[in-house]
């Protein structure tokens, strides 16, 4: 399977672990990434706040580059949720508004470029992994299952909301990462806040507000005794990882939960070396948690026999 690849700014530096692990698992997954040449920043959430036309032109330049270099099919894979959102939102809004598309193309023309809305299909890396590669194919590659590791799957916001193109998972209670982690052998903890916000850029604008949000997430994961939180977004990783110390200071807590990219955990389960997967770059060291990975599958907890008085629970549809 061939894909165009848009790493975005984060993966080049602060989230290089994400990039490295993505590249490392690509081969076992049978994926070939072709990086789109000379992409610029997607503007994150900031550029939209300054100038609409520039923000859209900025994103459209990337889409245009991808359209030009579409040797690897129409799919453009963005591992960063913010990039994913910006690219897909821009494409959706350009499609919805020919007037906007017209203006943006006028701007692109100044650089000798053009983008036809709808030509590039922006996908998130998680979507590609679970839907294109598939759980079964992933399961086949697992050589060192993550037995015993309690993982809190953390989706954050932008991968599932608002879902401009493919709504590949539920915006409120997504489950694809849960299922992926189970496929890797890990124990997935209930994590009600899995799609809540990490604070985003609030760390810069109002640290107390951001620390409050990060604290909630860490607390929620800790309440359910998670060993690690796994994430699919560089921003979420950075906030939960780099600010954990500040949270502890501000709230008098002692959280020590490593925040790992899902690709890193995938790589471990595939038996790849930790170094290749970018381990060691995290602020909260993953080493103590990883020691816990057992070789034997944990015993399934026995189903508690319901008491006589207990009322039946509603039946939930099976997770796919």
């Amino acid at each position: 399977m061939k894909y165009n690849y848009y790493p975005g700014c984060s993966l080049e530096r602060n989230a290089s672990a994400y990039h490295d692990s993505t590249m490392a698992v690509a081969k076992p997954l049978g994926i070939e990434f072709q990086e789109v040449n000379d992409c610029n920043c997607c503007g994150a959430v900031e550029f939209m706040a300054i100038d609409k036309m520039q923000a859209y032109a900025l994103i459209a330049r990337n889409l245009s580059l991808a359209e030009q270099q579409m040797s690897n099919g129409e799919n453009l894979v963005a591992p960063c949720s913010a990039c994913f959102l910006n690219l897909s939102k821009c494409d959706a809004y350009l499609s919805a508004s020919p007037a906007l598309a017209d203006k943006v193309n006028k701007a692109l023309a100044a650089g000798g470029m053009h983008y036809t809305p709808g030509q590039v299909h922006t996908r998130h890396l998680l979507d590609v992994a679970v839907n294109d590669v598939g759980y079964d194919a992933i399961a086949k590659k697992v050589s060192k299952p993550l037995y015993g590791l309690r993982v809190a799957p953390y989706y954050g916001c932008l991968i599932v909301r608002p879902g401009f193109l493919d709504k590949f998972d539920d915006p409120e209670y997504p489950t694809s990462l849960d299922k992926l982690m189970r496929t890797l052998g890990a124990t997935v903890v209930d994590f009600p806040m899995k799609a809540h916000c990490c604070g985003g850029h609030m760390t810069q604008i109002s640290e107390p507000v951001a620390l409050y949000m990060i604290h909630q997430l860490l607390k929620n994961a800790a309440d359910y005794e998670a060993d690690v939180i796994t994430t699919i977004c560089p921003m979420c990783q950075l906030n939960l990882d780099a600010y954990q110390h500040n949270v502890n200071k501000a709230y008098g807590t002692h959280y020590n939960i490593p925040i790992l990219y899902f690709t890193q955990l995938m790589g471990l389960a595939f038996g790849l070396s930790a170094k290749k997967l970018g381990f060691g770059k995290e602020f909260i060291s993953a080493a103590p948690a990883l020691i816990k990975i057992g070789v034997k599958p944990p015993k399934k907890p026995k189903k508690k026999r319901p008491s006589k008085q207990e009322l039946p629970m509603p039946v939930m549809p099976e997770e796919e």
């Binding site: 539920d170 409120e172 209670y173 629970m313 509603p314 039946v315 939930m316 549809p317």
Partner: peptide, 16 residues
Amino acid sequence: RRIPQYGYGRLANVFT
């Protein structure tokens, strides 16, 4: 169940 944020089916003490 179609509104997951209300927790029906997931949180025991949510009733219809």
